[in-house]
């Protein structure tokens, strides 16, 4: 299974069909508005979560898929639970535990925003083919060269991970097991060999590109242009979030 495909769930929903550049900008703008929201506005975060749930429903992304992907966040969740316990300052009693109030606020802030952010990213990655995400980035004027680099990285990631796996099998089949830092030289030799292979492959890929007429620019193969209507649909998400933020500001 290709690394780049792990999050993507093929589908024909309206969310899947939106041009990638619209989705990319929408998710980015949503994340910025969400991060800019004061942590005291619990209701606003509730509304944001509702918006993402609505997008997930329209895209027919099962909740289980999103929840499974959230393990990325786990280290930070564990940490967030730790802050109120070790924190100082004004304290309060919850179930017999003495917790720090500023610590609780901090934990809530991280949990809420990181969770909403990761959910939005998962929705983007689940409804957009990796290749299209890059095409979208290109349409958003991310420098062409950077997009090309990312494209090559995605293409060869699996190839290189396979090479790494084979080297590990070769090490272990000769009885090697990394136990402590004294075994670092063996790991480092593998890393060195991996670099040489990656570099040489890069050179061969370059030759293959030259052989088919490459001269520094990627030819335009997909011309994905977005209509005003598609932009409107995609930007409904961040605009709704922005409305929440502005309304909250007026009320305060």
């Amino acid at each position: 299974m290709g690394v780049g495909r792990r999050l993507y769930l093929p589908g024909g929903s309206p969310v899947h069909r939106l041009p990638p550049q619209c989705k990319l900008l929408a998710v980015l703008a949503f994340a910025i508005v969400m991060v800019a929201t004061p942590r005291e506005w619990f209701w606003a975060f509730g509304l944001y979560a509702g918006m993402l749930a609505a997008v997930a429903a329209v895209a027919r992304i099962p909740p289980g898929h999103i929840l499974r992907r959230m393990v990325v966040e786990l280290p930070f969740v564990l940490f967030a639970f730790l802050i109120p316990v070790i924190g100082l300052g004004e304290r309060t009693e919850v179930l017999g535990l003495s917790l720090s109030v500023p610590g609780l606020w901090a934990a809530w802030n991280i949990l809420a925003k990181a969770t909403l952010g990761v959910t939005a990213s998962i929705l983007l990655a689940s409804t957009t083919e990796p290749r299209d995400v890059l095409v979208g980035a290109q349409r958003l004027r991310v420098p062409d060269l950077l997009v090309q680099i990312a494209m090559f990285m995605l293409r060869y990631l699996d190839v290189i991970l396979d090479e790494m796996r084979r080297m590990r099998v070769a090490r272990e089949s000769r009885g090697f097991q990394a136990r402590d830092l004294r075994h670092a030289p063996v790991i480092a030799r593998s890393a060195g060999a991996l670099f040489i292979r990656s570099y040489e492959r890069g050179e061969r890929v370059h030759l293959a590109m030259l052989s088919r007429g490459y001269s520094g620019q990627m030819p335009i193969i997909h011309d994905l242009s977005a209509t005003a209507r598609q932009w409107g649909t995609a930007l409904a998400l961040p605009l709704a979030a922005l409305a929440v933020l502005l309304l909250g500001g007026l009320a305060a």
């Binding site: 990285m153 990394a178 570099y199």
Partner: peptide, 27 residues
């Protein structure tokens, strides 16, 4: 790197990604 930039940097990026997955035991 001239027009080698994209494939070379792309492969180096894939290498970095792979190397970050190479866990080494500390203690």
């Amino acid at each position: 790197l001239d027009d080698r930039t994209a494939p070379m940097a792309g492969l180096v990026a894939a290498f970095v990604f792979a190397v970050q997955m190479l866990n080494f035991p500390v203690a």
